[in-house]
């Protein structure tokens, strides 16, 4: 990433990754740490992604959590307190990943000390490959714990300057 926006994204990515680490640590008891990028898995199919749009005074962002199918399953099992051999319902898997990105967005907002930052509703998609290469104004970091633990990629994507108006939710 060589653009000015890219530098901004890189600077904010650390905060976003920390927000995800705090969320997974406190809510799942999962001690994730930044890990070397696993480029070999980037193009694999079967990824799950939950994302959320953030609108701050300095622009619009999108925070995305990417998890391979096995990691998404394990994250959901942890969140719902399921046994390791218990398969979560597809709706619960989507719900779990949306809730994690939603909480992380709240932590990101808290740490940015920006009470006007607007957090949209999270969305979820599964089945596609992870983005490779990343969009020009995006950066990602892989978070992992033990070899049998789930891992996630945190992706922060700059969507340009904030527009005035638009739909906002309460308050």
């Amino acid at each position: 990433m060589t653009t000015a926006a890219g530098s901004l994204v890189s600077a904010e990515l650390a905060a976003a990754a920390e927000a995800v680490r705090e969320t997974c640590g406190l809510q799942l008891g999962l001690a994730l740490r930044p890990a070397p990028d696993d480029a070999g898995a980037t193009g694999a199919a079967g990824w799950c992604r939950s994302g959320i749009d953030l609108t701050a005074a300095d622009g619009r962002w999108r925070l995305t959590l990417l998890a391979d199918a096995q990691s998404a399953r394990r994250l959901t099992q942890r969140l719902f307190g399921l046994d390791p051999d218990e398969d979560p319902e597809p709706a619960d898997l989507a719900d779990a990943l949306k809730e994690l990105v939603n909480i992380a967005a709240g932590v990101f907002k808290r740490d940015r000390r920006d009470p006007r930052l607007h957090i949209a509703l999270p969305d979820f998609a599964e089945g596609g490959p992870a983005p490779a290469p990343l969009p020009p104004d995006a950066a990602s970091v892989r978070l992992a714990a033990g070899p049998l633990d789930p891992q996630v990629r945190v992706l922060l994507d700059w969507r340009g300057a904030a527009e005035t108006g638009g739909e906002r939710r309460e308050p």
């Binding site: 705090e22 406190l26 809510q27 957090i119």
Partner: peptide, 23 residues
């Protein structure tokens, strides 16, 4: 998941007893 001064104020005005932030 959000815990702003504005939300706390609205919660208090509505008579809520506390606001617990996620996580």
């Amino acid at each position: 998941s959000e815990n702003t001064h504005e939300m706390r104020q609205l919660a208090e005005e509505a008579g809520a007893d506390f606001l617990l932030a996620k996580p």
